[in-house]
Design a protein around this nucleic acid. Structure first.
Lengths: 336, 336
DNA sequence: CTGAAAGCGCTAACAA
DNA sequence: TTGTTAGCGCTTTCAG
């Protein structure tokens, strides 16, 4: 079972009555080399007849290219974000005959990082970081090694690196504006405790509130952690306050969106009649609950596609591609 | 930027004052070759000093191995199932220095399939099909080519191929038994229209019902399609029938579980007081709704891990590994 | 326009 | 115990 027939370009050459070089020229469409039509046809026929597939390893050996890029992500990444982005990445790379090698972002020192080792040993030609936390030191290290890479993030890192992200935070203004147009009086915020300096969700909320003349009340701001139960209790705390109950809530992530809805269900509060809810982010579960959850949807697939394009350019040309911002979209469903 | 320092084993050999072969022997721990400790140390030092990483492409060229396996899935696969399985696959492969190359299952003729081309061109050494629909002809083709592969599926395909799946359907008995112990009178079934002959969910339900002395009523069986709205209407049809309303529902997939809960919410039916719900399958969203949804959880990570192990064995030894069935688990949450 | 030949970095006989 | 050497299959000067 372990043997391969292994038709090589030499076989094709012999079959077509030409030299190996000619086969290579034809198959790679090398420009600057003119091939007589009948020769080309003969070679193409031989290829088909022998079912020849160029050995990519041998090819890579010669070209110093593995024709694959590493996609690295944190282990605990939100599945949906990553998968959707990965689809885009995959399609973008596949169009250029590049493949995706999946790596996780876990290491002690950067030198020991899997993606570095993969790069050093020529298993990948470049790297796409998809929602992975990478330190400044790591970036410096990669820059010093001349490793082509691109980052995909929701929030711009603010660093001078090739990066694709989205403008979802700017849509918070539209959400607040929409709330206003619906006659909403008090708007609450529920989201995770900021863990990175560049997480500007709460600030964006505050700015949008100010813009539309709303007052941001401390007691209407929930910052929750990893425990779902705790988050629900905190949100229910908001809602049970008979006097100051908000009539709209901005949930800063899909998980917080779901938990906000859940909290309402637990208290028998009607959505959107009693309280309107909008979540920041995408999920395929927003349509599977009652009521369906309005949200700011991220262009995840396109972000992946763009990242693929950028990393290929970085690999080919060696130049860092400037940061790209792709547009998100405020999708109004039943909950708002 | 495009240049590499490219320390080769030759450099290491020179630095250590030995031959290339010796370096190779030491780094690959070739057995049957004894190396003097001081020589080994000298080489190891040189490796560290020069920061040498063996070129995996050159290595692959020699060994006829790419050290990576293709993971192929249908495009529209459930994200959660796939991602969780992929994690297991990745960890299993990574432990043997194999990497994951992500491929999609889309093609006209099998000869044109991406995974076949990848295999033929030596980009992957084997294939794991994760929840991908593969026809019998495709299997035959792969067998005839001697391609090492393994399939990961929820349902056993019943074909004589290396396969890892789970016994989740057998837990339906436990679910029905649990319903019975809670004094449930009428149990309904809600699930997708069977699209494959080997989808035995409904049969398993019927058998479990019979086993516990329940009658399977035609009017308490909902088979729905792709449209969420339609599915909800069908389920609500069940629930609105005042006389024959079921007091428990088995939802045959995560999506149907969510939609069943949603339907109850839309009608103001209490869970689990009025109707108990259990879903077949895993999802990280079951904890994010009210009430949390009971389910039969699949060992997705372990399935991936096992598949990795099996495909590596198939690659190494060339023999097909027998089908493995991993245990699922009935997890009782608030909805039942 | 096409062919001969060198060589990418590695492994594995075979020699020493 | 270690070194010499011959390729793996491909691309690519350089000749013809």
């Amino acid at each position: 079972m372990r043997k391969k027939k292994s038709v090589s370009s030499k076989d094709v050459a012999r079959e077509a009555g030409v030299s190996q070089a000619t086969v290579s020229y034809i198959l790679n469409n090398v420009k600057g080399v003119k091939i007589r039509p009948e020769t080309r046809q003969a070679v193409l026929d031989a290829v088909k007849k022998l079912n020849y597939h160029p050995d990519q390893i041998a090819r890579g050996m010669k070209l110093k290219r593995s024709m694959s890029v590493g996609v690295v992500t944190d282990r605990n990444v939100t599945n949906f974000y990553f998968m959707k982005t990965l689809e885009g990445i995959r399609d973008g790379l596949q169009a250029h005959n590049y493949s995706v090698s999946l790596l996780f972002n876990k290491y002690e020192s950067i030198e020991e990082a899997e993606f570095i080792k993969y790069y050093s040993s020529n298993r990948i030609d470049g790297i796409i970081f998809a929602f992975a936390s990478i330190s400044d030191e790591d970036i410096e290290y990669m820059d010093s090694m001349g490793i082509p890479y691109v980052m995909v993030n929701t929030y711009p890192s603010g660093r001078d690196v090739g990066e694709v992200c989205t403008d979802h935070l700017s849509h918070i203004q539209a959400v607040i504006g929409y709330f206003k147009s619906q006659g909403v009086k008090d708007i609450a915020y529920a989201g995770p405790v900021p863990r990175r300096a560049n997480d500007r969700r709460l600030e964006a909320f505050k700015e949008a509130m100010a813009l539309h003349g709303y007052e941001v009340k401390e007691e209407l701001t929930v910052l929750g952690g990893h425990d779902n139960g705790e988050v629900c209790r905190a949100i229910m705390g908001l809602l049970e306050d008979k006097d100051g109950r908000p009539d709209a809530i901005l949930a800063a992530s899909p998980r917080f969106g779901m938990l906000t809805v859940k909290s309402c269900h637990m208290l028998g509060i009607r959505i959107p009649q009693d309280v309107r809810i909008v979540a920041v982010g995408s999920s395929n579960f927003f349509e599977l609950i009652h009521p369906t959850l309005s949200s700011i949807e991220l262009p995840l697939y396109d972000m992946g596609l763009k990242a693929a394009e950028m990393v290929l350019k970085a690999i080919d040309k060696g130049d860092m591609v400037p940061t790209t911002v792709l547009p998100s979209e405020f999708v109004i469903r039943e909950s708002s």
